[in-house]
């Protein structure tokens, strides 16, 4: 190998590394610095060591928000992935109808999250009279989805699925498109059932897109702010106050940025742990 070849990968990686180092890792380091200080009203007051972490990890509100995030992320991840995968398979063929339907499914993904969640809230609200149009005929006209902790969480999960299934669909569709169609035909000739072909051809060949989709969705759901902020406001009774919403409130409403950053780093660590577990699971069940 020539000497230039040795440096080639680094030359290719240089722009990305420079950008990430200055605009992501730099602020992250400042954030870590903040997390060790008492930062009130955006101004650093005093060095406090681990006190912010201690405080965060013993706060019942934060522990509640971690649990809420776990429930939400798990529910959203499973539902979004399954629905997205089903959509990808359903809309795989290249007919005009399927292409039009892909665009249709993408619209919730394309509208600003803020507005999407505002519209969903409007639809879910019993008082607006819209949810009554669906629930009324089912004899549930007096049900308020958003006023009950359990159903409010379900609504939040629905919001995630409604918006992000399209993302999973696109990712998996791109993967499906890279599977040589010949494989399926050959298997069909050999008499393999649709389920067999899915298990033996589609799934194994989609390993990488599946992992990427799952990891991306997981990180997205753990870090999502807009859905709970707009749809449920974290309520009722903190039932949907996710950890990132809590972090946002600590930083930008309570103005205790040190604690907010400590929590952000806890979330960051939790994210890494979750992704690690996910990747391990995949590695154990087969080569990536």
């Amino acid at each position: 190998m020539r000497r230039a070849e040795l440096w080639m990968p680094w030359r290719l990686l240089a722009p990305a590394i420079v950008l990430e180092a200055t605009l992501v890792l730099g602020p992250l380091l400042i954030g870590i610095w903040y997390s060790l200080h008492n930062v009130r009203f955006f101004q650093i007051r005093a060095y406090v060591g681990w006190a912010n972490y201690q405080r965060i990890l013993t706060s019942p509100d934060v522990l509640n928000s971690l649990w809420v995030t776990f429930v939400f992320s798990l529910g959203a991840l499973v539902l979004t992935f399954v629905v997205g995968f089903a959509l990808a398979l359903w809309l795989e063929r290249d007919g005009r109808g399927a292409t039009a339907m892909r665009a249709v499914v993408l619209v919730p993904y394309m509208i600003a999250m803020l507005v999407g969640s505002m519209l969903l809230k409007w639809v879910f609200a019993q008082e607006s009279g819209l949810s009554g149009m669906v629930l009324g005929p089912l004899g549930m006209g007096d049900v308020s989805i958003l006023a009950d902790p359990g159903t409010a969480m379900a609504a939040l999960v629905f919001n995630a699925m409604w918006r992000d299934s399209a993302f999973a669909m696109i990712m998996l569709l791109a993967g499906l498109k890279s599977i040589p169609p010949g494989l399926h035909l050959a298997a069909r000739v050999d008499g393999a059932s649709a389920w067999m072909r899915f298990r033996r051809i589609t799934l194994p060949l989609l390993r990488v897109p599946i992992v990427i989709t799952l990891v991306r969705l997981l990180i997205h759901f753990v870090n999502i702010l807009t859905f709970p902020l707009i749809l449920t406001g974290g309520g009722p009774g903190n039932a949907t106050e996710t950890v990132v919403l809590k972090m946002f409130r600590l930083g930008f409403q309570d103005h205790v940025l040190g604690q907010a950053n400590a929590l952000a780093l806890v979330v960051f660590a939790a994210n890494l742990a979750l992704v690690g577990v996910l990747l391990l699971l995949f590695r154990r069940t087969g080569r990536l």
């Binding site: 008082e127 006023a147 009722p236």
Partner: peptide, 21 residues
Amino acid sequence: TPREAVAMTSDDAIDQFAAGR
């Protein structure tokens, strides 16, 4: 007052007021 008030923002409630509710 509707129970749903626990989930309504001040903007939501004002909208409902304007809606005559």
